[in-house]
Structure formats: C-alpha cells, structure tokens
Measured scan of single mutants.
Amino acid sequence: LVRYRTISKIPQITLNFVDLKGDPFLASPTSDREIIAPKIKERTHNVTEKVTQVLSLGADVLPEYKLQAPRIHRWTILHYSPFKAVWDWLILLLVIYTAVFTPYSAAFLLKETEEGPPATECGYACQPLAVVDLIVDIMFIVDILINFRTTYVNANEEVVSHPGRIAVHYFKGWFLIDMVAAIPFDLLIFGSGSEELIGLLKTARLLRLVRVARKLDRYSEYGAAVLFLLMCTFALIAHWLACIWYAIGNMEQPHMDSRIGWLHNLGDQIGKPYNSSGLGGPSIKDKYVTALYFTFSSLTSVGFGNVSPNTNSEKIFSICVMLIGSLMYASIFGNVSAIIQRLYSGTARYHTQMLRVREFIRFHQIPNPLRQRLEEYFQHAWSYTNGIDMNAVLKGFPECLQADICLHLNRSLLQHCKPFRGATKGCLRALAMKFKTTHAPPGDTLVHAGDLLTALYFISRGSIEILRGDVVVAILGKNDIFGEPLNLYARPGKSNGDVRALTYCDLHKIHR
C-alpha cells in the first residue's frame, strides 16, 4: 500500500512540481520508500527539464536528425535550378540546329562534286560548318556529364541527390541515346576521305529529338503553341524528305545512260545542264529549293507536275512521300480545326451564355430598361472574369491554397485601402477568403433606401454616388468604403439613402 501511494504521487509531482519531503505519510521509514524516492526525484528532475525545454521552444527539443539540413553532394545540380533551365534551352537550340543542318550536310555532301578544292585539302579548321559541328559534339558530351550530376524525382516524389543513384537512373534511361548522339564521328573518321560515311553517321544526332519531343509535351495545353509546333514538325519532315529526294537524284545521276532524272530535267529547265562528264548542272541553292518544293507539294497532295519522278527509285520514294503525307494530314492537320476551336472556345461560351440571357429575357418578357441593365451587367461581368467562376475553380483546392490565391487576387485593395494598413498577414488572409466580388454598370442602383444592410462594401474600381431623395450626399471612388460596420450592432440596419454607380464599378463586399 505504501508503495502504491508513493507511485500514485508521481503525476502530481510531474505537473505541480511538489516535493515529496513535505508529505508526512511518505516520510515513514520503510525500505521500499527509501529505494523508490531517489528514482522519483530523478524522474521528476528529468520531466521538469523536458517541460522547461518545451515551454522555452528551444531548438534542442527536436531530434538531432530533424535539425540537420538535407545534404547535397558537391557538384550536384538541382533539376529545378536556373542554371539547369538555361542549359536545357541551350541544348534545345543545338538539337534544332542539328535537326536542320545534319540531314542537309549528309545529303548535299554525298558524292558532291561542286567546283573547288576537296575538304581534305583545305583542312578541318577552315570549314565553318565542321567547326560548328565540333562545338555541338562537345556541348552534347558536356550535357552527358551534367546529367550524371543532376537530381531527379523518383516514384515516391522524392528528390534524389545521391550521385550513385543518379548515375544508375541515367544509365537506365537516356544515357545510350545521348551517348550515340554525342559521338564525334568527324574526329574519329577525319582524314579518311569518307565524307559520305561521316554525313550518314552524323544523322545519329537526330535521336535527341525524342527527348525534345517529350520536353515539349508540357506545352500541349496551349493551343497556339501546339499549332506552332505542328507546323514546325511538318516543315521539318518536309526538309528531311527534300534532303533524301536530292540524295536519290544525286546518286543516280552519274550512272544513268539517259538523262531522265529530276536533276537533269531541272538543269535543262533553268539552262544549267550537266555536261557529258557529269559536272556542271544547277547550283546547290536551286537543287535544295526545288527538292523542298517537290516534297511540300507531295505532302499537301497538290502535285503540280513541273517536278516529277521519272526513275524507279524516284517513283518509289514519291509513293512513300504520299503515304507520309496522308498520315500527316490525319495526325496534324486533322487537329488544326480542334485547336482553332479551342482557341476561340471563350468567344463561343460568351455567345452561348448571351443567347441564354436573351432567351430568358424573351421568355419572361423583361421590360426594355431592365433588359438593357441585365445585358450590360452580363457584358461587364464577362469582360472582368472571362466567364470563369472563381468560386467553382477554387473549390477543388485546399483552404490554405485558397487563402493564398484570394490574398493575391485582392492584393491591390488590401495594400491601398486604409482600414487594412497594419493588419497582420493572417488577418488579411482571413479577410480575403470572405470577400465576394460584384460588378455594376453605370446607372445601376446597388442599394435602395430602406434596404437591409448586411454587408460592408469596398470599391475596387469606378465611382458611385450616394443620394437622399434627389440630393447627392457624397461621391465615392476607388478604395472608399460604404455599408454597415460589421458586428457593431446586434441587428442589421437599414439604408438611409440610395447608392448608384456612376461608372463601371468593381466592388468587394463582406457579409455579416
């Protein structure tokens, strides 16, 4: 019993810090008490220290592992850092350059016999395009090294910054494609005289377009951006097909006994025919423009016929181009109408809503002055909100995010209106959640004399007048207030005048 009563005193000691020596009952000389009392004092002292730490809000209350900052290894790049964003855009520009100039170089340097010394005699450094290609190869190699040090988000939505895990993730992902696209074939085969082989191998750079397509997928929600990307894709495919079309004609031209190829026909049409040795002929500019003209006309199913396939190889390629053109029509131009419709969806919704308003007016036989006010209010409210119901949009977000959005939407009023000066951010967040926005066209009466005042109004834009009878008592403008002081009276009061809008007004109100 003594032991039980001794232990039962522990909660009292913990909360009230009572010393055991003052209790005459606990001072009985028993061996059990002498053993338990020192333990009680020690526990009391420890609990006292913990309570003191909690009340003082000291940093040592938290466990040590929670006080440590997340460790980022040296030379690790955050995937959302500004440097990584700028670097990704730079790589994107280099990939676009590669997609345009690599097929052009591979096709127009394929057994090209233009006048001038061969590239091997001039030297590697004197070729501007080769120098640019070398810079692109170096940048792609540097990009691989950067990807080995860039964080990523795993399946659990955690940012991984450990170098080993980053390397394994990159090896399992895009490393092989990036490595093949970054191989400097110019340096590996330079001086061997195989410019045709170098041009063909350099087309491996186009593998990076797969990554670019995935990154550009984030802009699919913007109709104008999608339309622009589709047109660029169409032009890029036409450019690639033009390079292939020229390569076919250029390879067949020296081996044909009869002059029936499209390059021969082009030379005869523009007065620059090929001679018996295969030299001469149109310039590279004429060849490229004509090839691009043929691919565009074939892809769009126009086909004027002034550039036509004559050999079997050219006919087979033309059939493939027609098939590609039909697929592009289905996948690209078939979506253009939907994209344009999405661009004008706001206008369509406006006309639909206006039609419903006019049908309501016609069905209920609203008189002319009231009908005009109804239409003007709808037009003004639509121009202010673009038909978007803010309350319906915010309803799907958590309250903390709703408060931040409301604070942002009402920031101008909260910053410049005098009653809100000096208020804490928590108070402003709470008030912003209570605001209701209303609009009024010129001549609209917001409050009639004798109406119950259940709200306090803040003028965000425009001006109003307060009338008693036919006498203008006051004219209020931006950041002015009218209405009933909230919670100042037990019952809502009545208006002693009319409140009429002089201009288009936007008002925020808080109800009782």
Results as ranks from 00 to 15, higher is better:
Q379K: 11
T290Y: 01
L67R: 05
A449F: 11
A247S: 01
F190C: 13
S298D: 01
G278R: 03
P163N: 03
F234Y: 05
A181T: 04
H351M: 03
L241R: 01
Q68E: 06
I340L: 04
E252A: 01
L323F: 03
E115M: 04
A348Y: 07
K111V: 04
N265M: 14
R429E: 01
I260L: 10
G422N: 15
T300G: 04
G249L: 01
Y288N: 01
G325L: 01
D217I: 06
I72G: 15
H448A: 09
F363M: 15
W262H: 01
F140T: 01
D133M: 01
L229K: 01
G123Q: 01
T150P: 01
H380A: 14
G261Q: 02
R165T: 08
S220A: 11
Y344E: 05
H169F: 05
N391V: 10
A182R: 01
I332N: 06
F304S: 06
D88M: 01
L229M: 09
L323Q: 01
Y377D: 12
L93H: 01
G443F: 01
L93A: 11
N275F: 01
Y222A: 10
M179D: 01
L90M: 10
L370D: 01
S383Y: 15
D88E: 05
P163V: 06
S331V: 12
V393H: 01
H79G: 01
S161Y: 13
L279R: 09
V289A: 01
V357M: 09
C232G: 12
N312Q: 01
L207A: 14
G305F: 01
L236W: 01
M328E: 03
R74Q: 09
Y384P: 03
L207H: 11
D444E: 09
F108H: 01
F435A: 03
D88K: 01
T385E: 12
D404F: 01
R74L: 05
L176Y: 05
S161C: 13
I135S: 03
R74I: 03
L236R: 01
R74N: 06
A224V: 14
T424I: 01
D268C: 04
K84A: 03
H169E: 08
P441V: 11
R208A: 06
I260N: 07
E195M: 14
V168I: 08
E221M: 04
L446V: 08
S331T: 11
A392P: 03
A381F: 05
L197P: 04
S326C: 05
V226S: 15
A69F: 10
R356V: 06
T311N: 01
V321Q: 06
N410V: 07
L209M: 10
L78H: 04
I189C: 11
I324V: 08
G334F: 02
Y219E: 04
G334A: 08
K172N: 03
I189S: 13
Q379G: 07
K418G: 09
I72S: 06
H448Q: 08
S81F: 01
L414V: 07
V100C: 01
W75L: 08
T295W: 01
A338Q: 06
Y65R: 10
R218K: 11
F185D: 01
T76R: 01
V131Q: 05
G281H: 01
S192E: 11
K285Q: 13
K66E: 07
S258A: 09
L414P: 01
Q415N: 08
L110K: 14
T203M: 12
V212S: 04
D133H: 01
S105E: 04
L374Y: 01
A107D: 01
A182E: 05
A99P: 01
A430G: 04
V168L: 14
A167T: 04
K202C: 01
P309A: 03
P441Q: 06
E314Q: 03
T290W: 01
T290I: 01
R429I: 04
G191P: 11
L414H: 01
E359N: 08
P82R: 05
Q415G: 11
L323H: 01
N312K: 01
D257F: 04
T113C: 01
L266S: 01
F190M: 12
S308K: 01
K84M: 01
Y293V: 01
N386M: 10
T233C: 15
S258I: 07
V226I: 12
I284L: 13
G164R: 14
L428D: 01
R349T: 11
I166W: 01
C406K: 04
N275H: 04
K215M: 04
F140A: 01
G280S: 04
P82M: 07
L67Y: 04
L323P: 02
K111I: 03
T203E: 01
K285W: 04
V136N: 15
L266W: 01
K84W: 05
Y288T: 01
I339P: 01
M328K: 03
V302P: 01
I138V: 07
N335K: 12
R259L: 01
F140C: 01
T437K: 11
W87Q: 01
L323K: 01
R349C: 08
N275W: 01
D133Y: 01
P128K: 05
L413Q: 01
P70S: 08
L92I: 05
C417S: 13
Y384M: 05
E196R: 14
A107C: 01
Y288M: 01
L413N: 01
E115H: 05
L343T: 12
V321I: 15
W75M: 12
L327F: 01
L413W: 04
A99F: 01
G191N: 07
V210Q: 13
A130M: 05
H264E: 03
L93I: 12
K215N: 04
N368C: 10
Y288C: 01
A235F: 07
R421S: 08
N386Y: 07
K285H: 04
L409Y: 03
G116R: 15
R208Y: 04
Q379C: 05
Y170W: 01
G443R: 03
A181K: 01
D133A: 01
Y80H: 09
L263M: 01
Y65L: 07
D404R: 02
S331D: 01
F140D: 01
I144Q: 01
I141T: 14
M139C: 04
M256T: 14
R429F: 01
G271R: 01
C427V: 10
L428H: 04
T150D: 14
L145N: 01
L94M: 14
E195Q: 15
M251Q: 03
A225Q: 06
I198R: 10
S194E: 14
N250C: 14
A330I: 03
L323S: 03
A125H: 04
C122K: 01
V95D: 01
F190H: 09
L93G: 07
G173E: 01
I138K: 01
K425Q: 11
R165G: 05
P309N: 01
L227P: 03
R373F: 01
V95R: 03
R373G: 02
L323W: 11
W174P: 04
S383A: 11
P309Y: 01
M256E: 15
Q353C: 03
R356C: 13
P254A: 15
